[in-house]
Design a protein around this nucleic acid. Sequence first.
DNA 1: CTTGCTGCAAAAGTTTTGCACACGT
DNA 2: ACGTGTGCAAAACTTTTGCAGCAAG
Lengths: 174, 174
Amino acid sequence: MSETPAPNAAASPAVPADDLLITPICAIFRRFLKRQGLKFTTERAQTLDVVLGKERVFEADELLDEMKSAGHRVSRATVYRTLKHLLEAGIIREVLIDSNKAHYELSFGKAPKGHLVCVETQRIVEFPTAELDALMQRICEENGFDPVSHRFVVYGVSPEAQKAEQAEQADSDS
Amino acid sequence: MSETPAPNAAASPAVPADDLLITPICAIFRRFLKRQGLKFTTERAQTLDVVLGKERVFEADELLDEMKSAGHRVSRATVYRTLKHLLEAGIIREVLIDSNKAHYELSFGKAPKGHLVCVETQRIVEFPTAELDALMQRICEENGFDPVSHRFVVYGVSPEAQKAEQAEQADSDS
DNA sequence: CTTGCTGCAAAAGTTTTGCACACGT
DNA sequence: ACGTGTGCAAAACTTTTGCAGCAAG
């Protein structure tokens, strides 16, 4: 059951480049489904809708909660199944933040981002990764690989957590 | 229950730099444990021993199997508990390969490595990441973070998998 | 109508934990 | 002796799956 991680490459054959900017993502998803002999159901539409509202990294359970809050009646199973399709359609991509649960982000049309994660508070800051794309190319060439995507995660202690730590120190001194 | 990912930084205060090259890792682990008021047990020694033999990325269950093969009687629970301590001691680090299970590698004294993963065969190639250390510094400075570590994973299609794919194409043409 | 989809509940896979007993220091 | 550690089995969590009824094309 080892899972193929976010095959962004699948997005390229999915939609002609020209359509990328003018076609609503919803239509793109519908086309993707049709091409695979799959159906565009209410649940899938609602899931996509909530996903499109996400500006940051999210996880499956969080998405489910948000959908229920939005008044959509959808099962956990369906959310997981739909996330798989959104991955294959290249509309979202997987972000590796920790090894316990999957994290996703909207990827449509956007360049891959780096993620700076606070090891104390789990706060996540995104940053652009222009130089990493070049590095990916080079590494792949050197090893005969065909590049698909890359992930760069930096772990550190956020300013907030640093302050909290200092406060703790002061406490133990008293 | 969110888990702190491989705090490599914990390694620095653990052992004076001079000892790094002359002290057996076993002694370093023992010291680390003593400092924390923990005990150096047979099971922990055996786990460290098997871990030291690993040249590549490994996972918890794989480690347990290998230990049993080596004739060590140890429980799964103890392996997991010991991995936590090895992480804190900075002797191993976590490698994010997929979001279903944790992967580790021996990190002692070694610079962080990048990983090139084949999305088809899961084969992993390591590569050095000198330029990424500098990038980590810069990103952390820009955001007021205190750098701890970083992970860079590139996904691609390995030469083997490319060949297999071409063979498949040829098949469907016939 | 035919085929795929949903929800439920159960299963599967990894990691954690409570408890009684055993072992380093 | 004291305070940790260990093993076991159960629990916790995320993700997957089988199945019966339901809905899209």
